[in-house]
Nucleic acid binder design. Structure first.
Lengths: 187, 187
DNA sequence: GTCTATATTATGATAGAC
DNA sequence: GTCTATCATAATATAGAC
């Protein structure tokens, strides 16, 4: 996928590099879509696990959210081909199975909980305990990853023009959802 | 590209749909990479022109920036396959020629000028007249487009969970680059 | 669980007639 | 500027021997 594009993955080439003949692959996968599905699930799982690990042992709330998203971003730029498969759906005929999708719901939940913790810790206002806040953070991360991968391929996370922006962008959550609502008249 | 993925574009299929035979294509393009390059250049040009048109007749500064980026986002979700070709480089063996890249420099310049205008109009602080601010806006737009295309394919701009976020995100520029620097001691 | 052999279909590209 | 014919190569997938 790295060499030919995600869409250029070939079952025959997989067999070639494994040192077996193409028919052998069919003992393990029903079709090339089965290979995509396994790659998709592995990728989702790996991404979830680095995020989970990064969030553990960090103060719950904004710190955990930032640590988790940084880890996810680092994983993505380190696995650009898989990340494209997961996040940009470049193979229209491939639809991941529910099992392959499952880890991504877990990731959403981790982020949603971190936002709720940030609200509870008064790092963010109550509006941050919302799907909207989740979408905003996902836009930040996906934007940074996409720009980094497209414009600075091969650069490690933390270098270049884009990935260093992520902490600054996450800091904007406090501007969107200020912990102390701007003093307004009682309503 | 829509049906088979950007990487699945086939010169033979192009010929088929044009009602000609494959060798005829070679009178117009050196190779399939020449087709990609033409698509890339057309896409960049189209994207530039909708942005330019949207910025004209709008108050220079933040309004023009927002209008231009909205128009660019709308164009992208309306042309998802071409947008993938332009913004995510899904064909590793394709390198756009300098001529095909040229419109994108013009786009950068339009946005940079809008940021400078916003600073001049005191809508944003001086720090916004910078490459960093440009990268931030590009992350916003690319993030919104990427999330919309991957998670809500086919939804028109303005609907769904992501594209309506763009104005809100652009509003954050004022938090990053406050027009009146927060009162600090003389330095 | 591996293989050979094969079916079927596709691709990008070129030579050369018209 | 179109075509026919062709080259060289590749793909996914299946049947069936071992």
């Amino acid at each position: 996928m790295t060499e030919e594009g995600v869409n250029g993955l070939s079952l025959s080439e997989v067999a070639r590099r494994l040192g077996v003949k193409p028919p052998s692959i069919y003992k393990y996968f029903d079709s090339i879509m089965g290979i995509y599905d396994a790659l998709f699930e592995r990728g989702q799982r790996a991404n979830l696990e680095v995020m989970r690990a990064a969030m553990e042992g960090v103060e719950p709330g904004l710190d955990a959210l930032a640590a988790g998203l940084e880890a996810s971003g680092r994983w993505a730029v380190n696995h650009p081909a898989t990340a494209q498969l997961l996040f940009w759906r470049p193979v229209p005929s491939f639809e991941p199975t529910p099992e392959a999708m499952a880890p991504s719901f877990e990731m959403v939940w981790l982020q949603r909980r971190a936002l709720a913790d940030a609200v509870a810790a008064k790092q963010l206002g109550p509006g941050a305990d919302s799907d909207e806040a989740l979408y905003v953070t996902s836009v930040f991360v996906s934007g940074v990853i996409g720009q980094a991968m497209a414009n600075e391929p091969g650069l490690p996370w933390g270098e270049g023009r884009f990935s260093p922006l992520l902490p600054k962008l996450l800091g904007l959550l406090a501007a969107l959802y200020p912990p102390k609502p701007a003093g307004r008249r009682r309503s």
